[in-house]
Design a protein around this nucleic acid. Structure first.
Lengths: 249, 249
DNA sequence: GTTATTTTACTAACTGGTTAGTTAATTTAT
DNA sequence: ATAAATTAACTAACCAGTTAGTAAAATAAC
């Protein structure tokens, strides 16, 4: 199983093992939560002995935090780029919403961990404070500034900026969160490529009509943004996380 | 606390006990999830012996389902009324969004259970299918009809009806879901009465501007709806569920 | 209408499976 | 050889579910 490339520098084989454990932990924690995750399964998925988890990370919780921080870093890096583009506030907002949608799609583990973290808030502070400082605080500042600029310049409607953010991002989160319900109600697969494409399109077109003072302009911008941002490729069909094997017991 | 009418026929003291167990279970499951919930804690909160849980409900999971169905019934009953009012589709929609917000606020346990159910979808079907049939299917039909009427009559903008639903309801769910993050980012309490009032208002006003073809009319309707629907009273401050004691260990 | 019998509601204490975490020994790399 | 990486085997705790029993109410018997 262990596919070490022929010229292994040896010294950092440990780093590779460490990384493999982290990936396995991420998948397991995302699929089963901190409490539901089984250290034995993480070890098996990483192809190592359980005790090695404790050699590298000293407890289940520390491992959880390490995996969470790893994926959080990725998310922040992939998200901040949008804000730096040269575009009007309204366009930046459309792009942010679209990027948010695509990010949830491609970084499902992060979304899953976040949701679980939201629910165990009352039990002794967990990963959140660090996450907020490192990921959400900077994004929030950017977002708020852009929104206010857009409203001040008259490009966007005069609504509570937070309400616009809630509607734009909430729609995405809610879509994926409630996918199992949609699946049962409407007998369609929310992760099917056509469904995803339709949702992406509807999201941007809706915002184009809903939050711009000039609805014509909003529609035009929506078209442009959609045209130059193709949907990420990948297999998202079942709603399961990629990389998680169905264990046979 | 137990307000048994003075002439207790004795016969239904059992029903009272059963109800007490269900309430305790609801609180515990909402706070800790199916896996995290401790049967011993439920028993203690209900003031009975753990074995009694198995006397009335034959397993932890059956107890979970019973509690879930109980609260789901309440939610459906309190929600369907809005659809039956005599009003334009647009107005009904504003009222639905507002009612949804208030419902999340007053029936926190349901929201919590739903979220947890969404996350353990891949492990052997749980409470969802029954829930969908009994609660979401009827609500969804109503919602879709109203939305289509509003778009057809020209009252609402020509957007994907599902996208409007996602934005309207998603904003609410997302607000409460991400409350812990807002709390840390903005140093304000998302469950403080002023914050809640502001959010309720912004929600309806935003929809008034965003989804009506005639923005004047939307704003006017928003004002009317807000004026005759006061915020539910109650103590929601900490984000903890009412009735859950902080266990001292 | 009192005594015997059954049923209902409930509890204390235990069982067995599960799982996070440990220890001491073994292998690999240099 | 010796330090780092890795494992097999073990332990302590926890917790869902069980068992064997009791007190009291309901029902039947006489």
């Amino acid at each position: 199983m262990s596919s070490h490339s022929t010229l292994d520098p040896g010294a950092d084989r440990a780093a590779e093992t460490r990384a493999r454990i982290l990936e396995a932990a991420l998948a397991e924690f995302a699929a089963s939560g901190l409490a539901g995750a089984r250290t034995e399964r993480i070890a098996a998925a990483a192809g190592v002995n359980k005790a090695l988890l404790y050699y590298y990370f000293e407890s289940k919780e520390k491992l959880y935090l390490a995996a969470f921080e790893m994926v959080a870093g990725r998310v922040r890096d992939s998200s901040m780029a949008v804000f730096l583009r040269d575009a009007s506030p309204g366009e930046k907002l459309l792009r942010t919403a679209l990027n948010h949608f695509d990010r949830i799609l491609t970084q499902r583990e992060f979304q899953s961990l976040m949701q679980q973290e939201m629910m165990r808030i009352h039990e002794e502070q967990g990963a959140l404070p660090i996450l907020v400082k490192r990921v959400f605080e900077p994004m929030h500042t950017m977002f708020q500034t852009i929104m206010r600029e857009g409203i001040a310049s008259g490009e966007l409607i005069e609504a509570d900026w937070m309400q616009i953010a809630l509607a734009a991002l909430g729609a995405n989160v809610f879509y994926f969160l409630s996918a199992p319900v949609w699946r049962l109600i409407m007998r369609f697969e929310p992760f099917a490529p056509e469904a995803l494409r339709a949702r992406r399109t509807a999201l941007v077109e809706f915002l184009g009509q809903a939050i711009f003072t000039d609805r014509e302009r909003g529609a035009e911008l929506a078209r442009r943004v959609l045209a130059d941002t193709p949907m990420p490729a990948g297999e998202f069909s079942t709603g399961k996380f990629p990389g998680i094997e169905v264990n046979s017991e």
